[in-house]
Simulated assay, not measured.
Amino acid sequence: MARPSRWTDVVEAAAEEFRSRGYDSATLEDIATRVGILKGSIYNYVQNKEELLLAVVERPAEVLLADLEQLRNDDQQSATIRLQTLFRIQVRVFSDHYPAAFVYLRNIGRTDLSDKFGKFTEMDARYMGILEDLIADGVRRGEFNPPVSPRIAALSLVGILNWMQHWFTPQSDEANRRLADDLFAMALGGLTSGGSLARILAGTHDAASSVSEPDRTTTRSVR
């Protein structure tokens, strides 16, 4: 059955409501008010709030993964260029699908949702696989030399990108691209520091180990 004519408005309002109030605090009545329809009319569109959450997060998740699958298959570009493109894709999706993409990030790890959300867990695993494979390919090509495994490096980059949900607001295409490149530059510094950073950390560890603990037998409390 086709959705009523204001379905797009309902989904956009739900995204805004979930973003501002959080999924648990938002109500279907609040969403109806934001759309400007009678509270009872929302049930012409969905039976429950979970259906709306699914509608909100589905599109950005599918767009992001489809773009990254294409990136994975592009072996003509260097790993460095492909990783830069990944950052640009992610920031673009965050902007084009704001705030729905961030609603996705905040809710997709929940365990109290129906089995319909299981596909997003699988999509997340595919996303991580693409990123980890890209970093591993960069290591094989001699482009990257991270001080950690490709898996840990991938998780670290995801942390940088996912934290954008707390501070990012869409800007112009050019500004978004510059932001993506700045974030990529920081990430690239860590991926290429490799042995030198490992030596620095080892030296820090050795220095810390050489500092003796205070002799607690001679320490007196001050009253």
Rank of each mutant, 00 (worst) to 15 (best):
A136V: 11
R34L: 10
L54Y: 13
R72H: 12
V103N: 08
N73L: 08
S193Y: 02
I130Y: 12
I108S: 05
R106N: 11
L113R: 04
G189W: 00
D9T: 00
L71Y: 12
I89F: 03
F117T: 08
E51Y: 00
V158A: 07
R88G: 04
V11F: 00
A125D: 10
E132Q: 09
V56P: 06
R3T: 07
A153G: 02
I130L: 08
N162L: 07
V57E: 07
L38A: 06
D215R: 13
D181R: 14
D67R: 13
R59Q: 15
P150H: 06
G36H: 08
D124M: 05
V103M: 14
G118E: 12
T169W: 04
T33Y: 05
P146Y: 04
P214A: 03
Q84C: 11
Q90Y: 11
L54T: 09
V10I: 13
E143R: 02
T33D: 09
Q84L: 11
M128Q: 09
E122F: 15
I37Q: 03
W163E: 04
I130A: 12
R110V: 07
E143A: 11
F94Y: 09
Q171S: 13
S41D: 05
S95V: 06
D9V: 01
D124C: 04
L157W: 08
L65R: 07
T219K: 09
T217V: 04
A136R: 12
P60Y: 12
E62T: 13
S149K: 13
L28G: 04
R151D: 05
F102T: 08
R126W: 03
T33P: 00
A208C: 03
L183E: 08
P60R: 12
F18Q: 14
E17L: 11
A208R: 13
Y98H: 14
I81Y: 10
K39N: 08
N73Y: 09
I200R: 04
I108L: 11
P147V: 06
S5F: 03
G189S: 08
P147D: 05
T192V: 10
S221H: 05
E213M: 04
E12N: 11
R92F: 03
Q171L: 14
P99C: 07
E69V: 15
A101L: 14
D75N: 10
F184R: 13
Q77K: 15
S212G: 00
N145L: 07
G36P: 03
I37N: 01
A26K: 09
A187C: 04
A198Q: 13
A180K: 11
R140L: 14
R6L: 09
I130V: 09
E132A: 02
A185S: 10
K39A: 02
L54F: 15
G203R: 04
I42P: 04
S196E: 10
K39L: 02
I37M: 14
A32R: 05
E132S: 06
P146A: 09
R19F: 15
R21Q: 15
K49M: 09
R216L: 08
D206M: 03
Y127H: 14
L131I: 12
R6H: 03
A2F: 01
A13P: 02
A136N: 05
L155D: 02
G40Y: 04
A125M: 09
G109M: 12
A180S: 06
G203N: 12
D173S: 15
D173R: 14
D67K: 14
Q165Y: 09
